[in-house]
Design a protein around this nucleic acid. Sequence first.
DNA 1: CTGAAAGCGCTAACAA
DNA 2: TTGTTAGCGCTTTCAG
Lengths: 353, 353
Amino acid sequence: MARRRQSVTIKHVAADAGVSLQTVSRVINNEPNVRPEMKKRVQDSIDKLGYVPSIAAQRMSGSRSYLILAINDRARTIADWQARLGTDWVDQMLLGGMLASGERGYRMLVELVDTHNDHVERELSAAIAALQPDGVILTPPHSDNPLITGLLAKRNIPFARIGSKAAGPGIAMTMGDEHLAAIATDHLIELGHRRIGFIAGPDDYSLADWRIDGWRGAMERAGFDANGLCERGDFGFESGLAAARSLLDLPDPPTAIIASSDQMAVATLEVARADGLSVPDDLSLISFDNTPIVRFTEPPMTALDQPIAATTAKAVELLIDGEPRTGDEEPIVMEGSLVVRGSTGRVPQRAVN
Amino acid sequence: MARRRQSVTIKHVAADAGVSLQTVSRVINNEPNVRPEMKKRVQDSIDKLGYVPSIAAQRMSGSRSYLILAINDRARTIADWQARLGTDWVDQMLLGGMLASGERGYRMLVELVDTHNDHVERELSAAIAALQPDGVILTPPHSDNPLITGLLAKRNIPFARIGSKAAGPGIAMTMGDEHLAAIATDHLIELGHRRIGFIAGPDDYSLADWRIDGWRGAMERAGFDANGLCERGDFGFESGLAAARSLLDLPDPPTAIIASSDQMAVATLEVARADGLSVPDDLSLISFDNTPIVRFTEPPMTALDQPIAATTAKAVELLIDGEPRTGDEEPIVMEGSLVVRGSTGRVPQRAVN
DNA sequence: CTGAAAGCGCTAACAA
DNA sequence: TTGTTAGCGCTTTCAG
């Protein structure tokens, strides 16, 4: 293949405008100390020639790479893509992240990294060495992985931790998991429910526990007993089946269940149906996540919506425009909301009697 | 922000192994003319130091950028992401493209470009100048845009055109649209249908017309009249509503409809329901695309599955490993298949009588 | 088979 | 305010 060189370089612009390379560079980077007339002259040449700086060259000379890396868990992401169940986490990240990056002249690159793997560090180091991103966005369960955060901190690369509240390097961001779980619980309590079950996520996701806290807190505030009403899943369908089974087989089963993922919620719906329970007449159901499929279930699912696009956009904004951080600021909370659909209703009468 | 430099460079490796930079470079790029013992010595140093070449530097020195650009239509892609209807085209591209790229040491970057816009060229030129990708993957409706293909050809950048059969520069790839439409039509014919309607896509997508050809061809082979049974939509839900309305309001309405997108199929389902028609008892329905939502409709939809991931992976493979092309080879066809679910059934009796 | 030198396009540091 | 110089980390010449 023919050796492809940049067609229009800073040299061409400099020659065309009759100035030095440095002046062109200053105009490109919007640096001060350029007379307006000079600036205009250079800008005209840039427009005329259609010049766009090579990010490779910019990166080389020690400046920025104009690249943001969005890192997701490899196994889970691939599984979601292959299953084609409509999980749109990555899409929402792209929606928020690509647009926010683009507005600032940056690109966002999705990178998959294995968490449960002894060479997480090597994998990440390689990506960083190859790409030299100006910022990294971590998603659960990477956000709290000290191997990852430590490496990034050591390399002095700004990063955001979505779904992490811990202090330390990197921008901690959450979508208000505890609060969301509480909102959902309160919604059910208002509908008269007192036995509200909870299907939690796996404990390597710290947000899984915050959600439990939110639910338990709301239960306690209302004076209801939450003991024995929490089961763990792994966010996947199968685990949801098992968790729902346990909950519904209880001697005094819950009249409502909150599931920490849409897949587990759909699984619960299935178990309920198998047991001859009508949703929402016999059992109310709320799902965390608000992915496309929950609108197509029968009945459509009441769900907790998480602002993934907005959170990613905010992360990009802070990474690029943000002030350097001290490391002990409060986590940034992007609040989600409850979308009420057809899977929640008043507590069944027999349960009240 | 502190100036971040590469932590381990080719120099460190060369020093550690006691060889010249050039020899290290040769090992990295797997070039010949390096004695095995030399190669091993260098490789050991690379592993020991955890060295990974900077792609910026590699690109700078006139070699490759290790970047593949996947270009999608901006407006449609953003609309799909915002609508959250489960369209997973981009995900499937990432699934196939990222993995195939990754295996070869490349990255795939998603780029959104406006088609209906007078500065398509400028937009694309800018992306190319900034990123200098080693290959570009075009998706409809960009694949047949001469402004785009011409620019890429002029710049001598290898590219694939997904959903394009035209001769000329770039690798033409299709998912067998005509054949797929014919398969769907034949399936319906076997079920006894003779009046089979077709809802086509917009004519700036050339695959929209191939699908019409496939349907019409199958109808003709079976000796059925296809006239007046084809309506155009724009792939979106609203347009599907209108198209389905026209078809079902015909004096002699079709007993089966094939829609060129899942959204238009879902819309047709809705119109049918509004008319009191049962699917599949009164009306059979087949959807192009096989996105997640069609599995959750009532009934689940029989759909034509398009191997987007496989096609993208193949594109990456050809772009990176492929021989230079002459420009007049046959299009590469990645055949899809019909997934039979619950929306297709035997023709209603009254239609046969 | 291996090495030394030059340069890719850009910016940082300094000089004018 | 502007220009000059020296690299950034790598690959491409071209010598040895």
